[in-house]
Design a protein around this nucleic acid. Structure first.
Lengths: 107, 107
DNA sequence: CTCTCATATAACTCAATGGTTATGGATAAC
DNA sequence: GTTATCCATAACCATTGAGTTATATGAGAG
C-alpha cells in the first residue's frame, strides 16, 4: 500500500491536524466544538482538518443531533509502522501480525 | 521532542524525498549521481531533497573527491516510532529501549 | 593551465494547501 | 414558527515548497 503510506504521511505532516489526532487518541471521542475550543484555529479550519483525517481513515465520525463526534481510528496507523519497520529492516518478524492486533485494539 | 517529530513528519511527507531515503535504507550508500539516475527529477532537485533529509538527521554525507556519498541514518526514525507507539498506547514497554537498539544498528 | 565532470546554490515559477470570513443546512430551544 | 446553535461548505487569500534552468564551486583528467 504505497498509496496509503503516502496519504498517511501527507495527512500527518500538518501540526494542527496531527494535534487533533493526538487529542482524539489520548482523550477519546470529541465534538467539533470541543476540538475547536483548544485548536488555536477557526471552526471551519478544524472541520477541514477532520475531513482530511477522515479521508485518510484516521478518524470516524458519528452524528448525534446537530453535533458530530469524532473518534481516532488507531488501526489506520498500521501502514506507518509497517513502513518504519521495513526501513529499519530488523523488525519484520515482530510486526508481522501487527495490523491484526491494531484492528482488535479499536474493538 | 515535538520539534523533532514535526521535522520528521514534514521531511518524510514528500514522496520523492521518502523514495530517496527508502533507497538509501535498502541499497546502502549512494552517490548523488546514482540517486539522480533513477529519481525521476533533476539533479538539483535531488540535492535539495538530500539537504532536507540531512537537516532532519535522516542521512549522512561523506565527500570523496568530487563525489558525495549519502547513507541513511536509521536511528533518526526513533521519534517516529515513539510517536506511533504513544498514539496506539499499548507498545510503550516494548519500545522503551528502541532508541538504543536503533543507535547500535547504525553502528 | 585548461577542460570536464560531480555536486551545490541561486533565481524563479507554479501548484498545493492551510488559513480566513461568509454562508448554508439541519437540529434543538424558545 | 422563529431564533439560536452546531457543523460543513464556498470563496478567497497568502504562504509554502517542489520543480525547473542557469550558474557557481571544486576536484580529477588531459
Amino acid at each position: 500500500m504505497p498509496q496509503t503510506q503516502d496519504l498517511l504521511f501527507r495527512t500527518l505532516a500538518d501540526p494542527t491536524r496531527r494535534a487533533l489526532f493526538e487529542r482524539l487518541c489520548r482523550e477519546g471521542e470529541q465534538t467539533v466544538g470541543a476540538l475547536t475550543a483548544r485548536a488555536g484555529v477557526s471552526q471551519p479550519a478544524v472541520s477541514k482538518h477532520l475531513g482530511v483525517l477522515k479521508q485518510a481513515g484516521l478518524v470516524l465520525d458519528r452524528h448525534e443531533g446537530r453535533q458530530t463526534h469524532y473518534t481516532a481510528q488507531r488501526s489506520a496507523l498500521a501502514p506507518l509502522i509497517d513502513w518504519t519497520s521495513q526501513m529499519t529492516g530488523f523488525w519484520e518478524s515482530r510486526f508481522d501480525d501487527l495490523e491484526d492486533l491494531l484492528k482488535r485494539m479499536d474493538q
